[in-house]
C-alpha cells in the first residue's frame, strides 16, 4: 500500500499538469480569436538585429544585438549548471541527485564516447567536447522558451503589418496585426487616391532575445575555436611532426609516384581543415535558423496544436546538433593526435 500511494500521486500530478497546459492552450487560443488577432508570418532577418541605434564603444556598426542577449542567457544557464553541480559535489553525497545528477549522467555518456575514440588523450579532449555540447545545447533550447523571438521592440518603417495598441489587465502594449484584408478593401474603394501616395510601410517586431545559434557570428566563432584547438592539440601530441600531415615529403624521393600522391593528399588535408570551419559554422547555423523559420511558418499557417509538434522536432534537432558539434570536434581532435601512418580518413 505504501508502495502504491506515491505512484498514484505522480500520475495525478501529470493529469493536473496536462489540464493546466490544455487550459492555457485553449485560453490563449480563444483570447487571440476574441481580440481578432490573426496569425501572421513575422519578418525574418538573417543577421542578428540591433536593439538600439547607438553603437557600443563608439565603433561604427557595432551594436548590441538580440542574439547577444541570447548568448548571455546561454552563458548564464551554463554557469548556473556549473554552480549547481559544484554544490552537489561539495555536499559530499556519493550519489548526486536532481539537476547535478542529470548533468553527471550526460557528462558520463560524453566521456565514455570520448574514451572510445580518443584513448589516452581523453583528459585533454573531453573538456572541449563537454563545454561545446553544453553551451550549444543551452543556446539551442533557450530559443524554444515562450516569449523568445516574439516579445521585443516595435520597429516602424519596415515590415508589412499594422500596429495596434492594446490594453490587457492594466498593461499597455502594442502588437502587430494583419490588416491586409481591410487595406485591400480600402484600396479597392479609393484606388485613385492611393495611387499617388508613397508605398505603405508597417512595423516589425525586433525581439529582445533570439537563440544565439541563429547568428552566423556565433557559429563561426565556435567553429574557429574548435578547429584552431584541433591544430593545437595535434601539435601537442606530435610536436612539429604534426606538420608532415600537410607537407608530406617522407616518400617523395624513394617512391616517386606514391610519394607524389601522398604530397598531394597532404595539401588536400590543408584544404579540408579550412572547409571544416565552414562546415561546422553552416551546419549549426543552418539547422537552427531553418528551425526558427519553420516554426514561424507553421505558426502562421496552423496556429493551433501543429506548432507543438514542430517544437518537439526542434527540441530534438537542438540536442542532436549540440552533440554533433561537440562530437565532430572530439573526433577531429582525436584524429589530430594520431600520427600520420595510422589515421583514418574523414572529410567534412
Amino acid at each position: 500500500m505504501s508502495e502504491q500511494k506515491p505512484k498514484t500521486r505522480t500520475w495525478a500530478r501529470w493529469v493536473v499538469l496536462a489540464a493546466i497546459l490544455l487550459g492555457a492552450f485553449l485560453f490563449t487560443g480563444f483570447f487571440g480569436i476574441g481580440l481578432n488577432i490573426k496569425p501572421i508570418m513575422p519578418e525574418v532577418f538573417l543577421p542578428g538585429e540591433a536593439l538600439s541605434n547607438t553603437p557600443i564603444f563608439g565603433i561604427e556598426g557595432f551594436f548590441i544585438t538580440n542574439t547577444f542577449w541570447g548568448m548571455v542567457g546561454a552563458d548564464l544557464v551554463v554557469f548556473l549548471l556549473a554552480f549547481g553541480v559544484y554544490r552537489g559535489v561539495k555536499s559530499g553525497k556519493m550519489v548526486l541527485t536532481g539537476i547535478s545528477g542529470a548533468v553527471e549522467a550526460l557528462l558520463e555518456a560524453l566521456q565514455n564516447m570520448t574514451e572510445g575514440t580518443a584513448g589516452k588523450w581523453t583528459k585533454i579532449i573531453f573538456p572541449w567536447f563537454a563545454t561545446i555540447t553544453l553551451l550549444v545545447l543551452a543556446a539551442n533550447w533557450l530559443g524554444l522558451l515562450p516569449g523568445v523571438e516574439t516579445i521585443g521592440l516595435l520597429h516602424e518603417g519596415h515590415g508589412e503589418y499594422a500596429v495596434r495598441e492594446m490594453n490587457f489587465l492594466g498593461m499597455e502594449f502594442s502588437t502587430i496585426w494583419d490588416d491586409s484584408a481591410e487595406m485591400a478593401a480600402d484600396a479597392h474603394g479609393e484606388e485613385a487616391v492611393h495611387a499617388g501616395e508613397e508605398e505603405y510601410h508597417g512595423a516589425a517586431i525586433v525581439p529582445f532575445f533570439r537563440p544565439v545559434s541563429t547568428d552566423l557570428n556565433f557559429t563561426f566563432a565556435l567553429a574557429l575555436v574548435a578547429v584552431v584547438m584541433v591544430q593545437v592539440i595535434g601539435f601537442r601530441a606530435l610536436g612539429w611532426g604534426y606538420l608532415t600531415k600537410f607537407w608530406n615529403t617522407k616518400h617523395f624521393f624513394d617512391k616517386p609516384i606514391f610519394g607524389f600522391i601522398d604530397f598531394g593528399v597532404g595539401l588536400l588535408e590543408l584544404v579540408s581543415e579550412i572547409s571544416k570551419i565552414l562546415s561546422f559554422a553552416f551546419r549549426l547555423f543552418g539547422n537552427l535558423f531553418a528551425g526558427a523559420v519553420l516554426i514561424f511558418v507553421m505558426g502562421s499557417l496552423v496556429p493551433f496544436f501543429v506548432p507543438a509538434m514542430f517544437y518537439m522536432l526542434e527540441l530534438f534537432v537542438g540536442m542532436i546538433q549540440a552533440i554533433v558539434f561537440g562530437m565532430l570536434t572530439m573526433t577531429f581532435m582525436a584524429q589530430a593526435t594520431q600520427s600520420h601512418g595510422d589515421h583514418d580518413e574523414a572529410h567534412a
Binding site: M113, G116, T117, R283, I320, I323, V324, M327, L328, T331, A346
Partner: peptide, 8 residues
C-alpha cells in the same frame, strides 16, 4: 556514434 557522424 559513427552513424550520427556519417549523417552529420
Amino acid at each position: 556514434t559513427n552513424m550520427i557522424l556519417g549523417i552529420a
